[in-house]
Design a protein around this nucleic acid. Sequence first.
DNA 1: GGTGAAAGCACCGAGTT
DNA 2: AACTCGGTGCTTTCACC
Lengths: 159, 159
Amino acid sequence: MAKFKLDEIDHQILDMLIDNTRVPFTDIAKKLVISAGTVHVRVKKMEEAGIIKGSSLTLDYKKLGYSFIAYVGVFLQKTSQTKFVLERINEIPFVTVAHVTTGKFNIFCKIRAKNTEHAKDVIFKLDDIEGVYRTETMISLEESINDKKRLMHSIFNEL
Amino acid sequence: MAKFKLDEIDHQILDMLIDNTRVPFTDIAKKLVISAGTVHVRVKKMEEAGIIKGSSLTLDYKKLGYSFIAYVGVFLQKTSQTKFVLERINEIPFVTVAHVTTGKFNIFCKIRAKNTEHAKDVIFKLDDIEGVYRTETMISLEESINDKKRLMHSIFNEL
DNA sequence: GGTGAAAGCACCGAGTT
DNA sequence: AACTCGGTGCTTTCACC
């Protein structure tokens, strides 16, 4: 996985697109005092290089009625079952991310649900997977996000 | 936080935009056999209602040299320090999310770093915060993402 | 690797049903 | 609420630097 060289202009373009992907290229061009064609070519190159993997909408899941977030640590009977269990976990709706981890848990996942009742259903599905010994749930009382823009800036400052 | 009524057409529109925010509204209109103006009006309504909070680019952090992910559980001396510590955590670069949680840890966060060396610096910064008693790190060996599209479909199927 | 202009489309508001 | 339509402005390409 080779690093890819981005220059200051690429940084600026990403900076303008990272939290609003529909900013017109003409606006970016104006701000950076380059032509819109150049913006287009550079974005295309970053897409081809795979630096830009895609774009997505940020939805307000709370407004959709899904305000419950929890992290669930999964203990396995044998670590050799990791792959199998991970595949089963990925089939469970409302599990949003899963990681194989070192440390306390074998697998660690995040779930998003309507409420505790609904979360219980999801966690029971996790517990029911063959090879899962037990789970440990941490309910999120408050989420505080250090946004993508900040992460990107930190990365650019170090490069 | 009231729920917002989305109909089948809204679902379809979100479905097309969720993993490519730059799909032309005319394409969406063609596929759903409605006019582009209608797509425009509906997207605007969802934005105004706050269902669509924004859009963002998905970057490949591995390609940028940041392939290390870890979760860090934070133990506090007193839970009353939660707010203060959370604010300090949010100032630390490369911490991407933080949650106040029930269960084992008081605060739980995710970090993204270049390598173990770099992660160590971040974790030391967490340990150094006044009021933090100790931390426990879980290194991610493999990330498996249950994408947004799937979560959205699960939600739509339940509504 | 960048530009500027031109052609082709998309966006988006106004007016209509 | 949805449609059509038209002005405005965005994207994308291409010949040239």
